[in-house]
């Protein structure tokens, strides 16, 4: 079976005054119809990996890879016109904060219709029906009201659901969710995750779930990549997360305060230079 997405030796670099800065340094993985978690702290390159796949790294940033293939077809550094056809229609992205990713002067309904119309070519009534369907699919109880609402008139959780509705309307094969629930309250968070999970499962999509929250990813995903300083340092089945072998992953897990295990002092992470460049435990992460 060919993977939906195949990434080998992906690199993203930015020129700076003191030489080139490598934000992503040789990331490799395959994505099937599964939920893949990408975890790391700020600056680990997790978001940049997502953006590079979608061709969203702005110049002067440079993306190189030995291979970046969607269904066996290279999508590395495609011309913007071809990338735009792909983006949204075949790979979609949900970002962290709906406040910043929704257009504030356009109603929710029109935004969903616009994204659907662009990719399906269908207009008018069909787009409207689809938008209302999608709002229902993300379990918005009163889809007509939300359809006519502006982003500031709805809550954060509702906004994020509208974002998911918009991104899933053109039926993409892959959804990249970059911290989709970090701006939400816990009770809303679980609800949004459940909706996303169901839609991804029902449609047989591949999901790349980018997050800083190790526990959440462990509970939500099938497989987890742990990133540090632009590289994948460990790859694990999500249910084996507690058995992580890399000291960085262990350190991250241990530094979290836990409700069920009171400790006098939290253990802190002693970063080691060897984590940046040492050999990776799994030589080819992401075998299906």
């Amino acid at each position: 079976m060919t993977p939906l997405l195949s990434v080998r030796d992906l690199r993203v670099s930015f020129p700076t005054r003191s030489g080139s800065f490598q934000a992503v340094r040789g990331v490799s993985f395959d994505l099937g119809r599964e939920r893949l978690g990408v975890v790391g702290e700020s600056g680990s390159g997790k978001s940049m990996t997502g953006r590079a796949i979608l061709g969203l790294v702005r110049p002067p940033g440079k993306v190189t890879a030995e291979r970046l293939e969607l269904d066996g077809e290279s999508i590395l550094n495609l011309p913007e016109r071809r990338m735009r056809k792909l983006r949204g229609a075949r790979i979609s992205m949900v970002m962290q904060d709906p406040k910043f990713s929704l257009n504030p002067v356009m109603t929710i309904g029109r935004q969903i219709m616009e994204s659907y119309r662009l990719h399906s070519g269908q207009g008018g009534q069909a787009a409207r029906d689809k938008a209302l369907d999608m709002l229902r699919a993300v379990q918005i109880r009163d889809p007509e009201r939300v359809f006519d609402a502006y982003p500031h008139e709805i809550s954060g959780g509702m906004g994020q659901r509208a974002m998911i509705a918009m991104m899933l309307a053109p039926d993409p094969e892959i959804l990249i969710a970059d911290e989709p629930t970090s701006a939400l309250d816990v009770s809303v968070r679980n609800e949004v995750l459940r909706i996303m999970d169901k839609l991804v499962r029902d449609r047989g999509m591949g999901l790349i779930f980018i997050s800083h929250d190790l526990n959440l990813v462990g509970q939500f995903c099938d497989r987890v990549l742990i990133m540090y300083a632009g590289r994948v340092v460990e790859e694990l089945p999500a249910h084996d997360l507690h058995a992580a072998r890399h000291p960085y992953t262990q350190g991250l897990l241990n530094s979290l305060p836990r409700l069920d295990q009171p400790v006098e002092r939290l253990s802190t992470l002693q970063r080691q230079d060897s984590w940046r460049d040492a050999d990776i435990a799994t030589p080819l992460p992401g075998g299906l």
């Binding site: 800083h212 350190g251 991250l252 939290l266 992470l269």
Partner: peptide
């Protein structure tokens, strides 16, 4: 803050 930094700050506060 990141979780590893959070642990340092919480320890400092304690």
């Amino acid at each position: 803050l990141d979780v590893s930094v959070q642990a340092e700050i919480l320890n400092l506060l304690a």
